[in-house]
Nucleic acid binder design. Structure first.
Lengths: 248, 248
DNA sequence: CATCCATGGTGTACGTTGTACACGACGATA
DNA sequence: TATCGTCGTGTACAACGTACACCATGGATG
């Protein structure tokens, strides 16, 4: 006689929380969301997936700690801002270190490039980072807009390179193609039609070159150096006229 | 006696298509989607909204012309690629023109910066544009990866600036804040807490400056010029040693 | 000791999204 | 006149974010 709802003893009806999971917390929710976003090729998460990873049966558990999915994204972004550091030193070394540190963080968390560009950097770690990045510019006789412009000129290429990385990862995952050869094979029908078409000879010359997929130059580090060169012209406007701005 | 389903004459039961809309087409679908994305602060669209704009009562009408929402995005992106032009001339003038033309297109269609970074540029307009951008680099003794790197080095800042523009538009729309003063007012609670905290003096010095919201420098045009300066070092490696790569 | 209430996790449910599928209207063709 | 390809519609479903009511528990309070 199998146990029914009536005769079943409490050991069956009261199965007590299976693995006695440790309690939820804002930190655990954010950490789980970051881990999932890191693992996902497109860097996207789902409240249900985050809840499942934490052993919760319903996404509603999370809302006691984060308010909304957007709020969770704010917290994730600020967490990564906390992984970025500005080394001490003169402005050029400091900003180069900022760029390289941010680039490393973006390589660990490609989704950061997408999310950080979609919200104001007002979290505690973000503000601390901007404070550290503005510090070496403070004695240079630059107005406020220019100081912040210097920082953003360094972070801009970082985010751009991160978005490109995210795109490549997503495309690779969607098509299930691991090697460069597989990827080139998948794009072949498109390419061949263009080659057969005969127009666009310069594009054809590019796709026909087997070395076209090599990383660079210009690498990210080189672009960053160019930006720093340009900023040097702002910081010490010796060559041009002092008040010279951009065209527009 | 009001007309019922049985006795009602055909003038009631057969109300014929109200305004006799012109037939759908792939061009009309793409144009409607672009118009909606231009109007939306976040640059996002909905298949239902596109269908409604075309006078259709169901989103399924569109799927006879576009395959999927992602496919529609591909078409939208390629349409904007068609608005970008490369002027004739030497490589530096050509690439500067490319950057400025792309920047104008991104200002018209901020969503382009987000979508173009999320897919390979394989549409006909995109390929024609890349062909035109590669053309002035073809006689310069650069390998294929470097030639494409030059083009992307120009387009990168364009997309970065576009994403920043998109973010500002979205934030402004979400908070319903029109003027700079309103915006500053909304951010005040955050800011004041930080100021009261006392840490982050350089950040405080920045937020306390009324001129911090002025556009620049560095403006987009100035950043573009820096990139072109950097590219000039690649194209004619007279100053440094020829084989010099990036730091890393 | 009985009661209350704050805290934290659950279950159900709703509106919105993309889109699969079957159907109906209609002009061209056989 | 019968058939068929083209075009648009209506219904339906799964997945998403999240509002709301509910229950379990454990310490504070009478």
């Amino acid at each position: 006689m199998p146990p029914t709802a009536e005769n079943r003893p409490v050991w069956f009806t009261d199965p007590q929380p299976p693995p006695a999971t440790e309690p939820l917390s804002r930190e655990r929710v954010v950490a789980a969301a970051i881990a999932l976003a890191d693992a996902d090729a497109r860097g996207e998460i789902t409240m249900r997936a985050v809840a499942a990873r934490l052993g919760s049966s319903t996404p509603m558990s999370l809302y006691r700690y984060v308010g909304s999915k957007d709020g969770l994204a704010d917290l994730m972004v600020d967490e990564v801002y906390g992984e970025i550091a500005v080394p001490p030193g003169a402005w050029r070394d400091a900003l180069r270190g900022l760029g390289l540190s941010a680039w490393e963080a973006v390589q660990r968390h490609p989704w950061f490039a997408r999310l950080a560009f979609s919200r104001p950097p007002l979290g505690p770690h973000a503000i601390a980072l901007y404070d550290a990045a503005l510090a070496p510019l403070d004695g240079l006789d630059l107005d406020a807009a220019t100081r912040m412009g210097c920082v953003n000129a360094v972070l801009g290429p970082v985010m751009g390179a991160g978005l490109a990385m995210l795109e490549e990862r997503a495309m690779r995952a969607k098509s299930g193609l691991a090697t460069e050869e597989d990827l080139a094979e998948a794009a072949r029908p498109y390419i061949e039609r263009i080659v057969a078409d005969g127009k666009h000879p310069h594009f054809i010359r590019w796709v026909s070159d087997p070395g076209r997929l090599l990383p660079g130059p210009p690498t990210f580090e080189q672009t960053l150096e160019w930006v720093l060169d340009g900023l040097a012209g702002l910081v010490t406007p010796a060559a041009g006229t002092p008040g010279e701005g951009a065209a527009r």
